[in-house]
């Protein structure tokens, strides 16, 4: 098994990686870039999400859907250790990235996040110029010279270049919400992560901006693997190849836990769900 293709340990390393060429012999599934094995997320003593196991397929869009409070965002944030700074948050089970457990002792969360980027629900550009927003990740990762080319490439990939090429030095905060979100995507892909996590990236946007982002996600799968959390089932059906349905369940002690109910190809999950709860949710009988 070709483990440790990407070195995430605390040793400084330049992880050179070409997306799309690592499909051979990684993990259990030849096409999966990440693998969740019995992942539970705790906040203090409270088990927010219980026992989640699912793969994240390379160069595909994986959607996580489910009612509010079912833990889908929590699971998403566990994929690049964004829960780390929350006091009392911890993860059990294994989150494998190219077969390497992201929560192993010598793994550096900074290195993890350089490989697994994130786009947030609310567009959150830095209060800097458009150029500096995109260049920020490049600068902190020590990429020098030819910054202009990298910035143009990232903005082009995020389908924003034509709209902003004449005002790169203007404040990013002057952009519209949809433009800001695409800027945040450009900022994320500028550092060339392998996986992009999106936490309800369109929930603050109007339908036209949403359509642009959805088109963009489709384009991005050429180079990147995308995991998206969405409240919008139509969106999951439109953009994703695989869908995970989560729900919240009350256990014997009357405590609510998030649980993964069903994971399968999106077409199958929406037309022929295996689980009754999935069917109830997608047909609107529940949630």
């Amino acid at each position: 098994m070709a483990r440790n293709e990407t070195d995430l340990s605390t040793r400084p390393s330049v992880a050179v990686h070409t997306p799309g060429v690592t499909a051979s012999g990684v993990g259990t599934d030849s096409a999966s870039v990440m693998q969740l094995r019995d992942v539970s997320v705790y906040y203090g003593n409270y088990e927010a999400v219980r026992g989640t196991s699912m793969p994240i397929q390379q160069n595909q869009v994986t959607a996580m859907i489910g009612p509010s409070g079912c833990g889908k965002s929590t699971v998403l944030r566990a994929l690049n250790r964004m829960n780390d700074p929350i006091p009392g948050a911890r993860v059990s089970g294994e989150v494998l990235f190219h077969g390497q457990d992201l929560y192993a002792k010598d793994v550096d969360p900074i290195q993890v996040r350089r490989q697994i980027g994130m786009v947030f629900q609310k567009p959150n550009p830095f209060p800097k110029s458009i150029y500096d927003n995109v260049a920020y990740g490049l600068r902190i990762n020590g990429i020098k010279g030819r910054l202009d080319d990298h910035v143009e490439e990232a903005l082009t990939k995020a389908a924003l270049w034509d709209e902003v090429k004449d005002k790169l030095r203007k404040s990013a905060l002057a952009l519209s919400g949809g433009q800001q979100q695409r800027l945040c995507i450009a900022r994320t892909i500028a550092v060339k992560p392998q996986v992009i996590l999106m936490d309800e990236p369109c929930s603050a946007l109007d339908p036209i901006a949403t359509a642009k982002i959805e088109d963009l996600m489709f384009e991005l799968t050429n180079d990147y693997t995308i995991v998206i959390v969405t409240h919008n089932m139509q969106q999951a059906a439109r953009v994703s190849h695989y869908t995970a349905f989560f729900t919240a369940e009350v256990d014997d002690q009357q405590v609510r836990h998030g649980r993964l109910v069903e994971f399968s190809q999106t077409g199958k999950l929406f037309t022929n769900p295996a689980d009754k709860r999935t069917e109830d949710y997608i047909t609107g009988r529940f949630g």
């Binding site: 980027g117 830095f126 902190i140």
Partner: peptide, 24 residues
């Protein structure tokens, strides 16, 4: 959100503080 955005780009905490939080 700004701290989280910087963190998600792989910035260390002192870098985030110095280049994002302090200028803001």
């Amino acid at each position: 959100e700004l701290r989280q955005a910087s963190m998600a780009l792989g910035a260390r905490k002192w870098k985030t503080t110095l280049t994002v939080v302090l200028p803001a």
